Simulated assay, not measured.
Amino acid sequence: MKIALVGLGRTGEVVARYLLQKGALSMVMCRPNSSKVNKDLGSILNMQETGIIVEPTDHLEERLFYRKPDIVIDFSCSSFLRDNINTLAKCGVSVVTAVTGYDAAEINKIRNVAEKGNIGVVMAPNITYGVNILMLMAEIAAELMSDYDFEIFEEHHKYKKDAPSGTAKKIADKIRNNGMTYREIPTHAVRAGGIVGKHKVLVCGEYDQLEISHESFSRVAFAQGAYKAAQFIYDKKGFYEMNDIFEYEKRQRSLIMSECRAEQTLAELDLA
């Protein structure tokens, strides 16, 4: 699996280092006017030379044709996929996007291109596994505790532009789609210091309350999630979200457990 990374911001650099360790990174791109263009990735990451020269995102079709990556992992901004999804589909390059800030029309465009069947797309506004488990737990709470009040709190570093975050909006959507469609869900955003990412759902009743929270201690959590999503989408076509990856892994675990039980039964029969 050959992975191209787009975006070398704070998180992108961590993702690049992680993918290098996995031996999967073959190409890195960033905006054409970036000071990082034409530099060896190693010099940017303060490590030995990697042989991977950071390329600009212009003339994308030509670059993809030459490098032939299987998957693009996008940690840049919403304009990259919005402007280049058709080029990626033409070149047969699947996508994992961890970018926030897409509007409804952009999401529909990306979904429509993916569903034509030439490439696969995983769209995850927060690609860490833990926060996606938080979403599943919030869905369960919304279904079983619809008479409670729900509020969302999220914290990020002071350089994060969107507030509330794409993740917070996604959590709110999950809650609304599971029994809370008629209820406003207040969201509170903090932008301060170097906070990597923290999300909390507060569920309050008249006599008790429940808190569901997740905090990222390191941006490596984003890299792990992105790599996992890339492994998932490698041989697939269509449009997916993180919950689809969870469902796939659940089926795989069930299959393994069934096989183990079958082997155990055969072993017991042999001993009988």
Rank of each mutant, 00 (worst) to 15 (best):
E206Q: 13
E206F: 12
E206H: 09
E206S: 14
Y207Q: 10
Y207H: 12
D208Y: 12
D208I: 10
D208T: 14
D208P: 08
Q209Y: 14
Q209I: 00
Q209G: 10
Q209K: 13
L210T: 11
L210V: 14
L210W: 02
I212K: 02
I212E: 02
I212F: 04
I212Y: 00
S213Q: 10
H214G: 05
E215W: 06
E215P: 09
S216K: 01
S216C: 05
F217P: 12
S218I: 02
S218N: 09
S218M: 06
S218R: 03
R219W: 09
R219I: 05
V220C: 01
V220G: 04
A221S: 07
F222K: 01
F222Y: 15
A223G: 11
A223K: 04
A223E: 00
A223P: 15
A223T: 10
Q224C: 05
Q224P: 08
Q224K: 06
Q224I: 15
Q224S: 10
Q224W: 05
Q224L: 10
A226G: 06
A226N: 00
A226H: 03
K228T: 13
K228G: 09
A229G: 02
A229V: 10
A229W: 02
Q231R: 14
F232W: 10
F232N: 09
I233S: 07
I233N: 03
I233K: 02
Y234S: 13
D235W: 02
D235Q: 07
K236Q: 09
G238Q: 04
G238V: 05
F239I: 13
F239M: 13
Y240N: 07
Y240L: 05
Y240D: 05
Y240H: 04
E241A: 07
E241V: 15
E241I: 14
N243H: 14
N243R: 07
N243A: 10
N243P: 12
D244N: 15
I245V: 15
F246H: 01
F246S: 00
F246M: 02
E247P: 10
Y248A: 06
Y248I: 05
E249I: 06
K250P: 11
R251T: 07
R251P: 08
Q252V: 11
